[in-house]
Design a protein around this nucleic acid. Sequence first.
DNA 1: ACGGAAACCTGCTGGC
DNA 2: TGCCAGCAGGTTTCCG
Length: 293
Amino acid sequence: MPELPEVETVRQGLAHHLAGRTVVTASALHPRVARRHLLGGVDLCDRLTGRRCLSVERRGKYLWMPLESQDEPEALVAHLGMSGQFRVTDQPLRGHRHLRFDALLDDGRWLSFLDQRTFGGLSWDVLKPDLLELREVPVALRQIAPDPFERGFDMDTVAATIRRRRSEIKRVLLDQQVVSGIGNIYADEALWRARVHPERSAHRMPSKAVVATLDAAREVMAEALGQGGTSFDDLYVNVNGESGYFERSLAVYGRQDQACRRCGAPIRRLHFMNRSSFVCQRCQRPPRRTPSG
DNA sequence: ACGGAAACCTGCTGGC
DNA sequence: TGCCAGCAGGTTTCCG
Protein backbone atom coordinates (compact mmCIF):
# COMPACT_ATOMS: atom_id res chain seq x y z
CA MET A 1 0.00 0.00 0.00
CA PRO A 2 2.16 2.82 1.21
CA GLU A 3 4.72 4.49 -1.01
CA LEU A 4 6.93 7.45 -0.19
CA PRO A 5 4.19 10.10 0.27
CA GLU A 6 2.17 7.86 2.58
CA VAL A 7 5.22 6.80 4.59
CA GLU A 8 6.38 10.41 4.89
CA THR A 9 2.93 11.42 6.14
CA VAL A 10 3.23 8.70 8.78
CA ARG A 11 6.78 9.82 9.64
CA GLN A 12 5.66 13.39 10.25
CA GLY A 13 2.87 12.23 12.52
CA LEU A 14 5.12 9.88 14.44
CA ALA A 15 7.82 12.52 14.83
CA HIS A 16 5.28 14.88 16.36
CA HIS A 17 4.17 12.32 18.95
CA LEU A 18 7.35 10.30 19.59
CA ALA A 19 10.33 12.63 19.60
CA GLY A 20 11.58 12.86 23.17
CA ARG A 21 9.21 10.17 24.47
CA THR A 22 10.40 7.17 26.47
CA VAL A 23 8.93 3.69 26.04
CA VAL A 24 7.45 2.37 29.31
CA THR A 25 6.37 -1.06 28.05
CA ALA A 26 6.30 -2.73 24.65
CA SER A 27 4.56 -5.87 23.39
CA ALA A 28 4.86 -7.91 20.20
CA LEU A 29 1.39 -9.36 19.70
CA HIS A 30 1.81 -11.40 16.52
CA PRO A 31 4.68 -13.74 15.54
CA ARG A 32 5.17 -12.12 12.14
CA VAL A 33 5.65 -8.54 13.35
CA ALA A 34 9.28 -9.17 14.37
CA ARG A 35 10.11 -11.90 11.84
CA ARG A 36 12.98 -9.83 10.42
CA HIS A 37 14.41 -9.45 13.92
CA LEU A 38 16.20 -12.77 14.30
CA LEU A 39 16.23 -12.68 18.11
CA GLY A 40 12.45 -12.44 18.15
CA GLY A 41 9.67 -10.19 19.36
CA VAL A 42 10.39 -10.52 23.07
CA ASP A 43 14.00 -9.46 22.53
CA LEU A 44 12.89 -6.53 20.38
CA CYS A 45 10.53 -5.29 23.10
CA ASP A 46 13.17 -5.76 25.80
CA ARG A 47 15.58 -3.59 23.83
CA LEU A 48 12.91 -0.91 23.44
CA THR A 49 11.76 -0.76 27.06
CA GLY A 50 13.04 2.30 28.94
CA ARG A 51 14.59 3.83 25.82
CA ARG A 52 14.00 7.38 24.65
CA CYS A 53 13.13 8.05 21.02
CA LEU A 54 15.18 10.90 19.55
CA SER A 55 13.50 11.41 16.18
CA VAL A 56 11.75 9.57 13.33
CA GLU A 57 13.67 9.17 10.07
CA ARG A 58 12.79 7.84 6.64
CA ARG A 59 14.48 6.57 3.49
CA GLY A 60 12.14 5.54 0.69
CA LYS A 61 9.46 3.37 2.27
CA TYR A 62 11.47 2.57 5.43
CA LEU A 63 11.14 4.33 8.77
CA TRP A 64 13.47 4.25 11.76
CA MET A 65 13.53 5.75 15.20
CA PRO A 66 17.00 6.47 16.62
CA LEU A 67 17.11 5.79 20.35
CA GLU A 68 19.12 7.54 23.02
CA SER A 69 22.25 5.50 23.61
CA GLN A 70 25.40 5.57 25.74
CA ASP A 71 27.56 3.83 23.18
CA GLU A 72 26.70 2.47 19.75
CA PRO A 73 23.78 4.29 18.11
CA GLU A 74 20.84 2.05 17.29
CA ALA A 75 17.26 2.33 16.13
CA LEU A 76 13.89 0.65 15.81
CA VAL A 77 13.34 0.06 12.07
CA ALA A 78 9.88 -0.27 10.54
CA HIS A 79 8.39 -1.12 7.16
CA LEU A 80 4.63 -0.85 6.56
CA GLY A 81 4.50 -3.54 3.86
CA MET A 82 1.16 -3.52 2.07
CA SER A 83 -1.16 -2.75 4.96
CA GLY A 84 0.84 -1.62 8.00
CA GLN A 85 -0.19 1.45 9.94
CA PHE A 86 1.03 3.25 13.03
CA ARG A 87 -1.47 4.91 15.31
CA VAL A 88 -0.96 7.12 18.35
CA THR A 89 -3.92 7.16 20.72
CA ASP A 90 -4.92 8.00 24.27
CA GLN A 91 -6.29 4.52 24.88
CA PRO A 92 -4.74 1.16 23.92
CA LEU A 93 -6.18 -0.56 20.83
CA ARG A 94 -6.15 -3.99 22.50
CA GLY A 95 -8.88 -6.08 20.94
CA HIS A 96 -8.38 -4.64 17.46
CA ARG A 97 -8.25 -7.55 15.01
CA HIS A 98 -5.09 -6.37 13.26
CA LEU A 99 -3.07 -5.13 16.24
CA ARG A 100 0.46 -6.57 15.94
CA PHE A 101 2.51 -4.47 18.38
CA ASP A 102 1.95 -1.73 20.91
CA ALA A 103 3.92 0.39 23.35
CA LEU A 104 2.93 2.58 26.29
CA LEU A 105 4.75 5.92 26.23
CA ASP A 106 5.79 8.09 29.19
CA ASP A 107 3.09 10.66 28.37
CA GLY A 108 0.42 8.00 28.86
CA ARG A 109 -0.31 7.62 25.16
CA TRP A 110 -0.09 4.42 23.12
CA LEU A 111 1.84 3.68 19.96
CA SER A 112 0.20 0.82 18.02
CA PHE A 113 1.20 -1.03 14.87
CA LEU A 114 -1.75 -2.50 12.97
CA ASP A 115 -1.26 -4.68 9.90
CA GLN A 116 -3.98 -6.66 8.17
CA ARG A 117 -1.76 -8.63 5.79
CA THR A 118 1.32 -8.89 8.05
CA PHE A 119 3.81 -8.04 5.30
CA GLY A 120 5.04 -5.13 7.40
CA GLY A 121 7.29 -5.47 10.41
CA LEU A 122 9.66 -4.09 13.01
CA SER A 123 13.32 -4.81 13.62
CA TRP A 124 16.37 -3.50 15.39
CA ASP A 125 19.52 -2.19 13.78
CA VAL A 126 22.78 -0.39 14.39
CA LEU A 127 23.21 3.07 12.85
CA LYS A 128 26.26 4.01 10.79
CA PRO A 129 27.20 7.35 9.23
CA ASP A 130 26.10 7.86 5.63
CA LEU A 131 28.65 10.16 4.04
CA LEU A 132 26.34 11.46 1.31
CA GLU A 133 23.50 12.11 3.71
CA LEU A 134 25.34 13.71 6.62
CA ARG A 135 23.25 11.54 8.93
CA GLU A 136 23.24 8.04 10.37
CA VAL A 137 21.38 5.24 8.59
CA PRO A 138 20.58 1.68 9.72
CA VAL A 139 23.18 -0.77 8.40
CA ALA A 140 20.51 -2.87 6.72
CA LEU A 141 19.27 0.14 4.75
CA ARG A 142 22.61 1.09 3.24
CA GLN A 143 21.68 -1.09 0.26
CA ILE A 144 18.48 0.94 -0.23
CA ALA A 145 19.17 3.80 -2.64
CA PRO A 146 18.45 7.40 -1.62
CA ASP A 147 14.93 8.54 -2.45
CA PRO A 148 14.38 11.58 -4.70
CA PHE A 149 14.06 13.94 -1.73
CA GLU A 150 17.32 13.00 -0.06
CA ARG A 151 20.50 15.03 -0.14
CA GLY A 152 22.35 11.99 -1.47
CA PHE A 153 20.07 11.64 -4.50
CA ASP A 154 22.09 12.71 -7.53
CA MET A 155 19.99 12.97 -10.67
CA ASP A 156 22.80 12.33 -13.15
CA THR A 157 24.13 9.34 -11.23
CA VAL A 158 20.70 7.74 -10.90
CA ALA A 159 19.82 8.41 -14.55
CA ALA A 160 23.08 6.77 -15.62
CA THR A 161 22.37 3.75 -13.41
CA ILE A 162 18.91 3.39 -14.92
CA ARG A 163 20.24 3.59 -18.47
CA ARG A 164 22.68 0.77 -17.76
CA ARG A 165 19.78 -1.60 -17.00
CA ARG A 166 18.32 -3.69 -19.78
CA SER A 167 14.95 -4.18 -18.04
CA GLU A 168 11.74 -2.36 -18.74
CA ILE A 169 11.75 1.16 -17.29
CA LYS A 170 8.92 0.52 -14.82
CA ARG A 171 10.70 -2.48 -13.36
CA VAL A 172 13.79 -0.34 -12.82
CA LEU A 173 11.79 2.47 -11.20
CA LEU A 174 10.43 -0.06 -8.69
CA ASP A 175 13.91 -1.35 -7.82
CA GLN A 176 14.58 0.15 -4.40
CA GLN A 177 18.32 -0.31 -4.88
CA VAL A 178 18.25 2.10 -7.84
CA VAL A 179 15.91 4.77 -6.46
CA SER A 180 13.74 4.24 -3.39
CA GLY A 181 10.23 5.28 -2.44
CA ILE A 182 8.50 4.66 -5.77
CA GLY A 183 5.80 1.96 -5.83
CA ASN A 184 3.16 0.84 -8.30
CA ILE A 185 0.95 3.93 -8.07
CA TYR A 186 3.58 6.63 -8.42
CA ALA A 187 5.57 4.70 -11.04
CA ASP A 188 2.48 4.69 -13.26
CA GLU A 189 1.73 8.34 -12.53
CA ALA A 190 5.32 9.44 -13.21
CA LEU A 191 5.51 7.51 -16.48
CA TRP A 192 2.23 9.05 -17.64
CA ARG A 193 3.46 12.56 -16.79
CA ALA A 194 6.67 11.95 -18.71
CA ARG A 195 4.77 10.26 -21.58
CA VAL A 196 6.92 7.16 -21.25
CA HIS A 197 5.50 3.65 -21.78
CA PRO A 198 6.27 1.34 -18.83
CA GLU A 199 7.58 -1.38 -21.15
CA ARG A 200 10.22 0.82 -22.76
CA SER A 201 13.73 -0.57 -22.34
CA ALA A 202 15.56 1.61 -19.83
CA HIS A 203 18.72 0.95 -21.80
CA ARG A 204 17.30 2.50 -24.94
CA MET A 205 15.84 5.62 -23.35
CA PRO A 206 17.57 8.94 -23.98
CA SER A 207 19.09 10.46 -20.88
CA LYS A 208 16.65 13.35 -21.16
CA ALA A 209 13.64 11.01 -20.99
CA VAL A 210 15.02 9.23 -17.92
CA VAL A 211 15.61 12.54 -16.16
CA ALA A 212 12.11 13.70 -17.13
CA THR A 213 10.64 10.52 -15.63
CA LEU A 214 12.55 10.96 -12.36
CA ASP A 215 11.54 14.62 -12.22
CA ALA A 216 7.93 13.55 -12.73
CA ALA A 217 8.23 10.99 -9.95
CA ARG A 218 9.56 13.59 -7.54
CA GLU A 219 6.87 16.04 -8.61
CA VAL A 220 3.92 13.66 -8.30
CA MET A 221 5.11 12.36 -4.93
CA ALA A 222 5.52 15.94 -3.63
CA GLU A 223 1.96 16.75 -4.72
CA ALA A 224 0.63 13.57 -3.12
CA LEU A 225 2.42 14.39 0.12
CA GLY A 226 0.66 17.75 0.10
CA GLN A 227 -2.65 15.88 0.03
CA GLY A 228 -1.67 13.49 2.83
CA GLY A 229 -1.05 10.61 0.38
CA THR A 230 -3.38 8.28 -1.52
CA SER A 231 -6.08 6.31 0.34
CA PHE A 232 -8.27 3.85 -1.55
CA ASP A 233 -9.72 2.50 1.67
CA ASP A 234 -8.89 2.47 5.36
CA LEU A 235 -5.75 0.39 4.84
CA TYR A 236 -3.81 3.61 4.53
CA VAL A 237 -4.40 6.25 7.17
CA ASN A 238 -2.11 8.60 9.08
CA VAL A 239 -1.21 8.22 12.77
CA ASN A 240 -4.52 9.86 13.69
CA GLY A 241 -6.52 7.43 11.54
CA GLU A 242 -7.25 9.97 8.76
CA SER A 243 -7.20 9.24 5.00
CA GLY A 244 -5.20 11.09 2.31
CA TYR A 245 -6.87 12.81 -0.61
CA PHE A 246 -4.58 12.27 -3.59
CA GLU A 247 -6.74 9.55 -5.15
CA ARG A 248 -8.85 12.24 -6.82
CA SER A 249 -5.72 13.58 -8.52
CA LEU A 250 -4.53 10.27 -10.00
CA ALA A 251 -4.23 10.42 -13.79
CA VAL A 252 -3.95 6.72 -14.65
CA TYR A 253 -3.69 4.41 -11.65
CA GLY A 254 -6.95 2.49 -11.21
CA ARG A 255 -8.60 4.41 -14.10
CA GLN A 256 -8.98 1.53 -16.57
CA ASP A 257 -11.32 2.44 -19.48
CA GLN A 258 -11.69 6.02 -18.27
CA ALA A 259 -10.59 8.96 -20.43
CA CYS A 260 -7.02 10.22 -20.27
CA ARG A 261 -7.05 13.62 -18.59
CA ARG A 262 -4.64 14.90 -21.24
CA CYS A 263 -5.85 13.49 -24.57
CA GLY A 264 -9.16 11.74 -23.88
CA ALA A 265 -8.05 8.31 -25.08
CA PRO A 266 -9.05 5.41 -22.79
CA ILE A 267 -6.67 4.29 -20.06
CA ARG A 268 -5.57 0.69 -20.54
CA ARG A 269 -4.56 -1.88 -17.95
CA LEU A 270 -1.53 -4.07 -18.65
CA HIS A 271 -0.41 -7.12 -16.70
CA PHE A 272 2.94 -6.61 -15.06
CA MET A 273 4.76 -8.70 -12.44
CA ASN A 274 1.57 -10.31 -11.11
CA ARG A 275 -0.01 -6.88 -10.76
CA SER A 276 -1.11 -4.07 -13.05
CA SER A 277 0.18 -1.12 -15.02
CA PHE A 278 -2.13 1.64 -16.19
CA VAL A 279 -1.23 3.59 -19.32
CA CYS A 280 -2.71 5.97 -21.83
CA GLN A 281 -2.41 4.23 -25.16
CA ARG A 282 -2.08 7.49 -27.06
CA CYS A 283 0.16 9.54 -24.75
CA GLN A 284 2.51 6.65 -23.92
CA ARG A 285 3.66 5.03 -27.14
CA PRO A 286 4.50 1.33 -26.76
CA PRO A 287 8.07 0.36 -27.71
CA ARG A 288 8.83 -1.38 -30.95
CA ARG A 289 9.45 -5.08 -30.56
CA THR A 290 13.05 -5.45 -31.65
CA PRO A 291 15.99 -7.34 -30.16
CA SER A 292 17.42 -5.29 -27.32
CA GLY A 293 20.62 -3.52 -28.17
C1' DA B 1 21.62 -9.95 -15.78
C1' DC B 2 16.97 -10.50 -16.93
C1' DG B 3 12.00 -11.80 -16.87
C1' DG B 4 8.59 -14.52 -14.84
C1' DA B 5 6.35 -16.55 -11.16
C1' DA B 6 5.47 -17.76 -6.62
C1' DA B 7 5.78 -17.07 -1.81
C1' DC B 8 4.58 -14.54 2.37
C1' DC B 9 -0.83 -12.95 4.32
C1' DT B 10 -5.90 -11.21 4.97
C1' DG B 11 -9.94 -9.55 3.15
C1' DC B 12 -12.90 -7.57 -0.25
C1' DT B 13 -15.52 -7.76 -4.68
C1' DG B 14 -17.85 -9.69 -8.49
C1' DG B 15 -19.58 -13.46 -11.19
C1' DC B 16 -22.10 -17.67 -11.34
C1' DT C 1 -27.11 -17.61 -0.04
C1' DG C 2 -22.62 -19.77 -1.00
C1' DC C 3 -18.45 -20.63 -3.41
C1' DC C 4 -14.57 -19.47 -6.03
C1' DA C 5 -11.58 -16.69 -8.76
C1' DG C 6 -9.30 -12.52 -8.94
C1' DC C 7 -7.44 -8.61 -7.00
C1' DA C 8 -4.77 -5.30 -3.67
C1' DG C 9 -0.33 0.28 -2.13
C1' DG C 10 5.59 -4.54 -1.10
C1' DT C 11 9.57 -7.48 -0.83
C1' DT C 12 12.12 -11.73 -1.31
C1' DT C 13 13.46 -15.81 -3.49
C1' DC C 14 13.71 -19.25 -6.78
C1' DC C 15 13.87 -20.87 -11.57
C1' DG C 16 14.98 -20.96 -16.43
